[in-house]
């Protein structure tokens, strides 16, 4: 898409606010609408937009697929890790009250970490799924191989 000058300029202007908005939704989820799921999808949308306008190779340079693939597991493991951490502190699985000296602070830490895990998994999974479909779409069709 080398000739779409307007799209390229607008995309370059739009991507930083999209990423910033995703982070806002992620960390402001305690106070307003939003949370890990929405933030993850918005974060992924920025990468999808970049891939659509500048091509898959450029997007793969920004976010190497094997690293993004790894993050799909990292987010979920972070979530489970919070639960295991509370187990080690002598509380039931995913009971955040023991994570800090003050139960309310513990709840805040727990929610922050868990939402972070959700956001990481959702964003990286969405980028990965888009990546695989886009990669698959530009391969020669099944019959053309041989």
């Amino acid at each position: 898409m080398n000739h779409h000058l307007i799209l390229r300029v607008i995309t370059k202007i739009l991507i930083p606010p999209i990423l910033l908005f995703a982070l806002y939704v992620q960390f402001h989820g305690d106070y307003g609408p939003g949370g890990g799921f929405q933030a993850g999808v918005i974060f992924a949308a920025a990468f999808v937009l970049y891939a659509l306008i500048f091509g898959l190779d450029a997007a793969n340079d920004v976010a190497p697929p094997h690293i993004v693939r790894g993050f799909t597991a990292v987010g979920w493991l972070l979530y489970i890790g919070v639960g295991v951490w509370s187990l080690f502190l002598g509380a039931p699985f995913l009971d955040y009250s023991v994570l800090a000296h003050d139960p309310i602070h513990g709840q805040h830490y727990g929610i922050l970490l868990v939402e972070g895990g959700v956001g990481i998994t959702v964003a990286s999974t969405m980028i990965t799924i888009f990546n695989y479909f886009a990669e698959h779409g530009r391969l020669p069709k099944e019959g053309d191989d041989d």
């Binding site: 979530y79 998994t121 990286s124």
Partner: peptide, 30 residues
């Protein structure tokens, strides 16, 4: 919990087992 958005406190604290499962579903889809 002292979180103004009740949806977040239900989703991430009271019902965090459900959310763990949902995140697992997305991971599995990937």
């Amino acid at each position: 919990i002292d979180v103004p958005n009740i949806v977040t406190s239900v989703l991430a604290s009271y019902r965090s087992f459900d959310t763990l499962g949902e995140t697992g579903v997305i991971f599995t889809a990937g």
